[in-house]
Amino acid sequence: MLKTRIIPVLTFNGFALVKTKKFANPRMVGNPVQAARVFNSRGVDELVFLDIYASDQNRKLDPMIVKDVIKECMMPVAVGGGISDLEDIRTLLKAGADKVVIKTKALTDPSFITAASEVFGSQCITIAVDAVLEDGAYMIYNRNGYKVPLLEFMKRSEEFGAGEFIINSVDQDGMMNGFDSTLIHLAESNTKLPVIACGGGGNLEHYKQLFLETETEAVASSSIFYFTQYTPNDIKQELERVGKPVRIV
C-alpha cells in the first residue's frame, strides 16, 4: 500500500533558511545543509528545498548549494526557485534533484510545463499552487498582480503535463493553527495527480484533521519541525492511530 508522505520543506532566501508567516516576515531558522542532514538521519519520506525569493529577485538558485543539500539526502528531493527555462531544470536535476517545483513560470506560461514534461517526464514536474482566499474564492497570484482562480490554474497545469501539485495556503503559512482543509479538499478532489498539502500544521491534531477531512496522501511542513518538539515520525504515529498507511523508520 502506498504510504502517506510527510515532507519537511526547507525555505531558503539565497543565504539561510527562513520561515515566513503568510508569506511575509521571514525569520532565520538555520542552515540548509545541516537541516538536510538532520532530516536524512530521521529517514524522512522526501524533502522539498525552495528558494522562495529567487523569482522575485530575478535570481537563480545556486546549483552548488543544491548539490551540498542533496549530498546529505538518501531520499527524494524536490527543488524549486526561479526556474524559467529548460536549462534551469537541467542544472537542478544534474545537481541531484529528483523533481523540480515550478510556480511563477507555470502561472504566466503554461506551455512551459509541456516543454519541461516532454523532456524530463511529467513525474518530475511539481507545480506550486500558492492559494489566497479572496472574497470567498481561492486565487493564485504572481508578484505583478496577475491572478487566476485555483481550479482553473490546476486544470490548466494538469492538461499541460504537470506531475504533482503542492497546495499551499498563503493565509495559513507559518500560523501553526491548522490546515485549510476546505482548500485542500477542493484542490485534491479536482485532480487525478498526487497532491501535497501545505500550510498551517502546528500540532498532531492538525494533521489528523487534515487526513480525516481530505483525500490527500501527502503533507509538507516546516514550522512544526522548527518550533515544536514534534518530528515527522510523531506525525506518522498519530496518523497510524487513525488508520492511515505510514512508513515508520
Binding site: K3, Q123, G163, P194, V195, R247
Partner: peptide, 26 residues
C-alpha cells in the same frame, strides 16, 4: 487512484536473491 504512482510502497518479493537482509519492504 492518482497517477503517477508516487511515494513509498511495499513490495512483495517473489525471488529473494537480492532482497536478503532488507530492513523494510518499502
Amino acid at each position: 487512484l492518482r497517477v503517477p504512482h508516487m511515494g513509498w510502497n511495499n513490495i512483495e518479493v517473489k525471488q529473494d536473491d537480492y532482497y536478503g537482509s532488507i530492513s523494510t519492504k518499502d
